[in-house]
Amino acid sequence: MAPREQLEIDPRRSRVFGEVAELYDATRPGYPEPLVREVLAYAALGRRAALEVGAGTGKATVPFAAAGTPLVCIEPDERMADVLRRNTASSPQVQVEVGPFEDWLPSESRSFGLLLAATSWHWLDPERRWDLVHGALAPGGAVALFWNLQGVRDAELHAALAEVDRRHGMANAPHGEPASSFGDVPGNGGAVPGSWPDAECRRDGRFTDLRAHRFRREHHWATDRYVGHLASLSHYRVLAAEQRERLLAGTARVLDAHGGGIAMEQISDLFLARTR
């Protein structure tokens, strides 16, 4: 499938998550264990540590740490990092550092065996991110980029939610696509158009052994949790407060009228590559 047109990311959106760090942590979905196993098998870290970029509150950090992976986590927001530290308090091999990845320099260049970015790659400077990744990795080191996306299983519910979004000017809700639209190709249907990294990585030329995987799960969200999840998303956070509350209230009414929640196809797409 041809790459979709690159979306111009509003820089305000990368700085809003800390406003709702606890809500983000409580409502955001994590990543499936098979994805974690696939990454670790591919990276074959041995004694080398991993570097996580944009770690947030630890949705990916926690399962990788549970597998025994030593991690240095870079998170630009101190409020998110505070929750991350709490969530990894029982994992002494996790180190948390605060600041933008673009400003962070490893103490020993090209030392990491794995760099991972969980739903954060699209926030990095597209002009510099492959240089930064290559500079942080040891020769043969792996990069793992992955995202969660959702598809609505009920066509009638999808249509009703689409009407609410249209009325309130929301164009990129996670329930914006029916589950049937995603197909089987990793990178198809991503929430951020143009973010799938395959073409960009191939143009860079310093990486090899490119692979892609798609993992599927069924998930049911109760109304309150799903609306909380929406409230933690950047494109909802940047709305005026009154507009956001009207949109969320309308979404909740639709969900309550359809049984008090939403059944979703939870898809996790994984991209892997390694330095030559």
Score class of each variant (00 low, 15 high):
132 L>I: 07
133 V>M: 05
134 H>Q: 13
135 G>T: 09
138 A>I: 09
140 G>M: 06
141 G>P: 02
143 V>T: 07
145 L>C: 05
147 W>S: 00
147 W>E: 00
148 N>T: 00
149 L>Q: 00
150 Q>K: 05
153 R>T: 15
153 R>P: 05
154 D>M: 06
156 E>P: 03
159 A>R: 13
162 A>Q: 05
163 E>L: 11
163 E>T: 11
164 V>W: 02
166 R>M: 13
168 H>N: 15
169 G>F: 14
169 G>D: 02
173 A>S: 13
175 H>Q: 08
179 A>Y: 03
180 S>Y: 08
182 F>W: 12
184 D>N: 07
186 P>W: 03
186 P>F: 06
187 G>I: 01
187 G>M: 00
189 G>Y: 04
191 A>Y: 07
191 A>I: 09
194 G>A: 05
194 G>Q: 05
196 W>V: 01
197 P>M: 04
200 E>R: 06
201 C>L: 12
202 R>L: 11
202 R>F: 10
206 R>D: 09
206 R>I: 11
208 T>H: 09
212 A>C: 06
212 A>H: 00
214 R>H: 03
219 H>Y: 15
219 H>Q: 15
220 H>N: 12
220 H>D: 15
221 W>Y: 09
221 W>E: 01
223 T>H: 04
225 R>T: 13
226 Y>R: 03
226 Y>L: 05
227 V>T: 06
229 H>K: 08
231 A>Q: 11
231 A>M: 11
231 A>C: 10
232 S>I: 14
233 L>V: 04
233 L>Y: 03
235 H>K: 09
237 R>M: 12
239 L>Q: 08
239 L>W: 07
240 A>F: 14
243 Q>S: 13
244 R>C: 14
248 L>C: 05
248 L>W: 02
249 A>G: 07
249 A>P: 06
251 T>H: 03
252 A>T: 03
253 R>G: 04
253 R>W: 06
253 R>F: 14
255 L>N: 01
256 D>H: 14
258 H>S: 06
259 G>W: 06
260 G>S: 06
263 A>G: 12
